[in-house]
Design a protein around this nucleic acid. Structure first.
Lengths: 223, 223
DNA sequence: AACGGCGGTTAAGTTTCTGTTAAGCCGTTG
DNA sequence: CAACGGCTTAACAGAAACTTAACCGCCGTT
């Protein structure tokens, strides 16, 4: 599934560079040359807005304010020529998620986009999702395709830990340090066994719980 | 991943307003009504503390002192009545801290929070770039043009080492001394092989990883 | 033109890591 | 007391990674 990004930038050259870089990185892009134009192109498929602050007519900040007032929580990355503190402040004040000063490197921008998208993907409730797997951290329950699945305590703790840090790999030692607060002298293999049990309960979704030699285990929803 | 903020404020109304504003701005909040209470709620997920200076029992300043003594470097934003004690504050304001005088606007507070969080994040950011290559030192992930590329552990260690010392050449022996802490008797050629693997994964960006006779290997972004 | 030093690559052997099953231990429950 | 479930360790086959050795090619020197 391709992430869609709206670029709002009046400089045609920069817009073209952004479009090219983002599409090469696998994003689908929409382009607008003004805030008004961008507002029209808004739709709920768009996952992120790259927003120039200096635009003819309505400024980027104003647009951000309008969007937030409309209840639109989409993440915004502001592009600005000036790197003064004021810009940063007003960018955040209008609810922006990040801020990149021109000139910026493509790699930096891509990295920020990745970070912002990832951040916005994980929600703030006690319910955490990873594909068709959901964990209710408050009730300490696990659901697979909407049906509750029972896990033992240690299995649950590992699963909850991993799903709260999706996409990051943890070695057995790290998992033990994090979860075996009372008995930090447990053998690495103990984790393996719990992982095996978790996997068997994940049934058709074993693929969510991956391992990488030298890096450990991670819960990740791909594709 | 959502930023978590601890609010320590004894006025229930103000606490509620803060909670509401921060959560609307996308932060997760914890609330405490006293310094002692706040100390209990401390955990290392919390990225920022909003701390009233006038609290029943232990004051905000005292709490800050206790936290700093415990080696806790978390940024703190003090909330204080306008008239008083700015000298005292300015002494404290070193090291990522800030203060906001009551009454304050939500926008101002959010801006300050954003600035402080950004400052504390960028001061120790785990993201290092070299051209279109990025390495996330925290998540131990490598990105090429924004797409993740998988490296084995040794490959990753070498790449991370080189990108953190961009532009400097390291001989095979130096690399071995730095990275093979457990087995410093490894043959030089081992490094060559890992370098070859890394290069093949760098695809169109092999040019970033250069070698110089007699000097060794280096990661450098030119032009 | 032959040689030797050096870097790059490939292929193989060896080691380490992973997934799984089985079994022992312990506290709880009936 | 026996049965049970959960946690932990042990053991082993298969997979992945690491290391070594050997080979190829480049380049400067003789």
């Amino acid at each position: 599934m391709m992430e869609e990004i709206l670029i709002i930038e009046d400089d045609a050259d920069l817009r073209e560079i952004l479009k090219f870089s983002l599409e090469r990185a696998g994003y689908k892009t929409y382009e607008a040359e003004s805030a008004e134009n961008g507002l029209e192109m808004m739709n709920d498929r768009i996952r992120l807005i790259l927003l120039d602050v200096m635009l003819p007519g309505m400024s980027g900040y104003e647009l951000a304010g309008v969007l937030r007032e409309k209840g639109c929580k989409m993440p915004i990355i502001f592009l600005t020529a000036r790197s003064s503190e004021e810009d940063l402040l007003s960018g955040f004040a209008s609810g922006g998620d990040d801020y990149v000063a021109k000139p910026f490197s493509t790699a930096e921008l891509l990295a920020r986009i990745g970070a912002v998208l990832k951040r916005s993907a994980s929600s703030c409730t006690g319910l955490v999702h990873c594909g068709l797997l959901s964990v209710d951290l408050d009730a300490e329950k696990v659901f697979l395709e909407g049906n509750e699945v029972l896990f033992s305590r240690k299995e649950y703790e590992i699963l909850a830990f991993l799903i709260q840090n999706q996409g990051i790999f943890f070695t057995r030692s790290q998992i033990i340090k994090a979860l075996w607060l009372d008995a930090p002298f447990v053998i690495d293999r103990t984790v393996d066994v719990h992982i095996a049990h978790i996997r068997s309960k994940l049934a058709d979704h074993k693929g969510l719980l991956v391992s990488r030699v030298g890096f450990g285990y991670s819960l990740k929803y791909e594709q």
